[in-house]
Design a protein around this nucleic acid. Structure first.
Lengths: 244, 244
DNA sequence: AGCGATTTGTCCGTATGTATC
DNA sequence: TGATACATACGGACAAATCGC
């Protein structure tokens, strides 16, 4: 079967286009039956390129730890994950992952107090300049980074949430310790962009990778906004589902 | 202000990385105040590259019709859109766009009858091999392609839906003419991948572009599946919002 | 154990694209 | 505008490892 051809001389190296496609195919389960990638010659034929070009693509994937080439046997698939995040009124990060990962971590990278910009103020229904607490977090599942997020909270209502998050690694738990037993996801915006430099290092991606960006607003039971968060997920590793 | 540096020699040409970043900045409204891109020398400084490299990036964006360089004035922004698609139980494509575009089009690219694969059968709650109608559609807003979709319908229940769609350009209307007055969005999966060759031509994208992929299931009022659709949207031009 | 087929690893050389100065 | 350095992509040839018969 002839694969849809890659495009030449458009600023994206052939080996990178091919690496991206193979990575997607692995995540999509296309090679599950054999547990390895087709032989280099076959891939070269499918993509209409030289075998060396396929080798460059596979070398990049091996660098990412996704595959491992073994002389004489083939190129074995080591890692193949795509976490599913349900989005609903009850969206909770850690619960959402559920049993899809054994080990869940929430790291606090940084925290600060700052004044609400016009955009933040309107989303959180505060006045411009109102004090906010900003948390920079990195979440991991089974040691792999699955999202990095910037979250803002009204500072007067949730003093101490930074420490609470650092200790628990969970927004839900942190909310609980500062006096909010429950909250609800009001709205979620989803876009996708190329990974920027910070994404590349924080999420351990390679250049050209895609990140899914969500902008989420959480509120308490009375509908008063309690958190606005911008989260960035490696697109290869996650998908979102909305159940209506 | 020093921009986060672009990465060299990682399979994506500098000019393309910069083009992607500028395109995102335009879509994000960063240059709305002046209506044009900063001068080439300024951009070169920000990204830490030679001015020629910035020129290659801007030339690519001009080719896409996003900017236009005018000698003596600068590089003007021609087009800057990001359509918002609400996702809910009542998700309707044309209504969802609402007044975000004046002109809405739904084109039938192809239709066929085929047998349900295991995946399709399980999603539509049919038996494997059940007859399905497949529609390939392209939707445009203000002449710009905003999604291409493949949709499957149970063939026995919705015979004639291909013609109905071709005539109306609307799934909702087509359902109405074949006897289904109302339907409900049951679930939506969202992922993001690099555009493949078909995306590039159908959605008029340039290589390296990102497409948002949705897999949606619609059902009738009794919860019986009536449609399963895989849609692909140019990530630069759309975002999704989920209101809970 | 031997053999051939399959598959990855390494080397050569050449042409073109990318980026700087 | 050229000159230069490096990355990308191709083509071919052969070595080395694995597997099934």
């Amino acid at each position: 079967m002839q694969e849809a051809a890659v495009r030449r001389q458009n600023g994206v190296a052939l080996w990178r286009q091919i690496a991206d496609r193979i990575r997607s195919a692995i995540a999509g389960g296309d090679y599950d039956a054999i547990g390895k990638v087709p032989p280099e010659m076959v891939l070269a034929e499918q993509f209409g390129v030289n075998r060396h070009t396929v080798r460059s693509a596979l070398a990049a994937l091996a660098q990412e730890g996704i595959v491992q080439a073994v002389q004489g046997r083939g190129t074995l698939i080591l890692r193949k994950e795509r976490l599913n995040f349900p989005i609903s009124r009850r969206t909770r990060f850690n619960q959402g992952i559920g049993d899809q990962a054994r080990e869940k971590e929430g790291l606090l990278l940084a925290s600060a107090e700052e004044a609400a910009t016009a955009d933040l103020a309107s989303r959180l229904k505060l006045s411009v300049g109102a004090p906010l607490i900003r948390l920079e977090t990195l979440r991991k599942a089974d040691r792999r980074p699955v999202s990095r997020a910037t979250a803002w909270f009204p500072a007067d209502r949730f003093a101490g949430i930074a420490d609470a998050y650092r200790d628990s690694g969970s927004i839900t738990t942190a909310f609980g310790t500062v006096g909010l037993p429950d909250y609800i996801r009001v709205s979620t915006e989803i876009t996708a962009v190329h990974a920027d430099n910070d994404d590349l290092s924080a999420l351990e991606l390679s250049p050209g990778a895609i990140v899914l960006v969500t902008r989420a607003l959480n509120a308490d039971a009375d509908g008063v906004p309690v958190q606005y968060a911008v989260s960035r997920f490696p697109a290869d590793a996650v998908q979102f589902t909305i159940e209506n």
